[in-house]
Nucleic acid binder design. Structure first.
Length: 341
DNA sequence: CAGTCGTGGTA
DNA sequence: TTACCAAGACT
């Protein structure tokens, strides 16, 4: 049941400039969008950004034109809504797992208003096992807001995007850039890693995005909107395909000759290990099991069905309360529960 | 600002 | 097998 139609390959620029994606992309950079507006004097490293940029841009852009994946949300027909849906799903989730859910989602809800017309529980159900189901709730909430506040069209202004539930700094910039061809620093984990290595000369970026990283990203941003949007997609793709967290392949990197980290002998990451997640036994695991039961049931389920997923009653109750508090589960009369209607 | 929030593939 | 990682957002 491969629902993916055999679409013609499209250039990355096609999606960026797609006029059917919504409001016309800006052709003139807005006021104050210059990269040199930050008040503080350039930090070490940033002042050489101009030099870096000239060395990095052309090879990375050319590499992208040749190696970019043909992902459905990059096709012209995806539109701004398709881009936005993909960005929600891709938050902390690999492309391979997003693809099938994305296709079904867009087929069922081709416009924001289509999703907004349904109860949020349907979004949670269709989210399937993508993880972090609050994203489904937020995407539904964003669709409602777009329908109410923006006439059903995904807004093109960064500030308006940022005001939608589930959209933070990264996603607002990504939608504005990928869907509307605007000039924004799109700082995701891939781009941060590429910059950390090529420019800063370290293996990994800091745990949390820093002001210095934002400043560097702005300094590296090409001047015109079209090239900036192209660069955003290209630098991200390089991090996703070549300059990966583990097993990076410098032999396939178009800027390996300029990479500060590689030229320094690829020194290992200094400092504490990344993070300790340990999923087994956490509330998150219990929440996941509880919600799975609700998702797979057509109607409300009884307390006994939920009790069966976890042996420890205190943690189980806490997890269920959390799901209800988050709006992911709706309690009914008589100890029954369902996805929100 | 550090914690929380799912899930599954891979080294 | 354990641990890390995958286009973050929110509190």
């Amino acid at each position: 049941m491969t629902a993916i139609p055999p679409l013609p390959a499209s250039t990355p620029e096609a999606a960026v400039n797609d006029p059917s994606a919504g409001p016309r992309p800006r052709t003139v950079p807005g006021p104050g969008s210059g990269a040199d507006r930050a008040g503080a004097p350039d930090a070490a490293g940033v002042e050489t950004a101009g030099t870096r940029a000239s060395a990095l841009h052309a090879p990375v852009l050319a590499w992208f034109d040749q190696h970019a994946r043909d992902l459905p949300w990059r096709r012209p027909e995806a539109g701004a809504w398709g881009v936005m849906v993909s960005e929600f799903m891709l938050q902390q989730t690999p492309v391979s797992r997003v693809l099938p859910v994305y296709e079904q989602w867009l087929a069922r809800w081709p416009r924001p208003a289509d999703l907004a017309a349904e109860p949020s529980g349907e979004a949670v159900r269709a989210w399937g096992r993508l993880g972090y189901p609050r994203r489904a709730l937020r995407l539904h909430g964003a669709a409602v807001a777009i329908t109410e506040r923006h006439g059903g069209d995904v807004p093109s202004e960064h500030a308006q995007l940022l005001a939608l539930p589930g959209i933070g700094e990264y996603t607002a910039a990504a939608v504005a850039s990928f869907a509307y061809g605007q000039r924004h620093a799109v700082l995701d984990t891939n781009v941060r890693r590429v910059f950390a290595r090529t420019v800063t000369g370290v293996q990994y970026p800091p745990n949390a995005t820093t002001a210095a990283e934002r400043k560097l990203a702005r300094a590296l941003l090409p001047d015109d909107d079209t090239t900036a949007a192209h660069w955003a997609a290209a630098s991200m793709e390089l991090g996703a395909l070549v300059c990966t967290a583990r097993n990076e392949d410098c032999s396939r990197c178009p800027v390996s000759g300029h990479c500060a980290w590689r030229l320094a002998g690829k020194p290992a990451h200094e400092g504490p290990a990344r993070r300790g997640q340990t999923y087994a036994g956490t509330d998150r695991q219990v929440r996941g099991r509880l919600l799975a039961v609700l998702r797979e049931s057509a109607g409300p389920v009884g307390q006994a069905s939920l009790d069966a997923v976890w042996h420890e009653p205190v943690q189980r109750a806490r997890a269920l309360d959390g799901l209800v508090a988050d709006g992911l589960v709706e309690p009914l009369e008589g100890g029954r529960y369902r996805l929100p209607g």
